[in-house]
């Protein structure tokens, strides 16, 4: 019996099987998270608004996501007349798959990453850029006024916020000297003052950098207060207006997958990944704790702040975030050159 288990472990350790295991695991992880983050969202919203939220299905409404999933899956997939059929159907998948692929390079633990590649950070940013296209194509293919307005908004928003996000990423690459996410985490070993967030001797504006990254992450994932793409009270449901059943469900799952990815990336870049804040007992549990704290803060922000105006959103990026992120970039390069020159 033990021999059989050792053989199985050996078999699973060979590369293609290992990848397969990670692939299935990642899909299950994203699916479960998407389902239960909806529960967290609804419970959180309810608590912020002083009401109980879902309570009927299961203890504290814990089975609510399953009921929701069954409901969504049993609904008819309506493809309205006059839409571009192929693009209409492909758009949700196009939104979901980049997030799934990007999760492959996230180092969940010291040896727990599907693929430890040297350009991991770049890979996440390049696949994340496909996201815009998905919402835009979905909106355009719907042939709906609201959806097209939403698609146009999404592009201006994402183009505006991709610039400061990439500038922050370049700052982080300069500070760490690598694009390998696992190495970035390893550099932050020790106690919490070694985390990039608190390394003010490299760049005194490091917390500001984190704030810019976090804001851009909210905007890139189209979360309130930046949910211009959906904006229920203005655009019905924006780019998702014409989607029914699981078509909408996949968009919804993709939104949570993207939030998860953004929070995981923030954890890796700024909060020390799987490193423990006290320098002992590092492990995957710390990664999950930090990541879910960030996810909770995203929910918290959504139900606390009202939606910004569209011009306010663009002004925030072009007039504040981009100049400040350029400043942090120049400042950290100057400080690396002056004080930390290898």
């Amino acid at each position: 019996m033990t021999e059989a288990i050792t053989n199985l472990v050996k078999l699973l350790a060979t590369e293609p099987y290992r990848l397969l295991v990670f692939l299935v695991g990642m899909m299950a992880f994203v699916g479960l998270n998407a389902a239960y983050l909806v529960w967290v969202e609804r419970k959180g919203a309810a608590r912020f608004q002083r009401r109980p939220g879902p309570t009927e299905v299961g203890y504290a409404g814990l089975l609510q996501p399953i009921a929701d999933a069954v409901k969504l899956m049993s609904k008819q997939l309506i493809v309205p007349a006059g839409v571009d059929r192929t693009l209409f159907r492909v758009a949700p998948l196009l939104m979901m798959s980049p997030a799934l692929m990007s999760l492959a390079v996230i180092p969940w633990g010291e040896n727990l990453a599907a693929r430890n590649i040297n350009v991991g950070l770049l890979m996440i940013f390049s696949f994340a850029s496909i996201n815009v296209m998905a919402i835009m194509l979905g909106g355009w293919a719907s042939r709906n006024k609201y959806a097209i307005i939403s698609a146009a908004r999404v592009v201006s928003q994402n183009v505006a916020y991709e610039i400061p996000m990439l500038l922050v990423a370049i700052t982080m690459i300069m500070v760490t000297g690598t694009m390998n996410l696992n190495e970035i985490v390893q550099q932050q070993a020790g106690a919490f003052w070694h985390w990039n967030l608190f390394r003010v001797w490299i760049n005194p504006l490091m917390p500001v950098t984190f704030l810019i990254f976090y804001t851009c992450m909210l905007a890139e994932t189209n979360r309130a207060p930046f949910d211009m793409a959906e904006a229920e009270s203005e655009l019905v449901a924006g780019a998702y207006t014409e989607y029914s059943g699981m078509g909408f469900g996949v968009f919804f799952m993709a939104e949570y997958a993207n939030i998860l990815l953004g929070c995981a990336l923030a954890t890796v870049l700024f909060l020390g990944g799987w490193q423990s804040p006290f320098g002992i007992l590092s492990g995957v549990i710390w990664f999950l704790l930090k990541m879910y704290f960030l996810v909770f803060s995203v929910v918290w922000i959504r139900w606390t702040f009202p939606r910004t105006q569209f011009y306010g959103l663009l002004n925030l990026s072009w007039k504040i975030l981009i100049p400040v992120s350029l400043l942090t970039l120049i400042l950290s390069s100057a400080m690396i050159k002056l004080f930390h020159h290898a």
Binding site: V119, L122, M123, F125, S126, F127, A128, S129, I130, V132, M133, M136, L137, W140, V155, N158, V159, E162
Partner: peptide, 16 residues
């Protein structure tokens, strides 16, 4: 990855 980031993420989005 640069091909995806620039051509898919920037050029195609701009064209659309």
């Amino acid at each position: 990855l640069m091909e995806i980031l620039i051509y898919v993420g920037a050029v195609c989005v701009t064209i659309i």
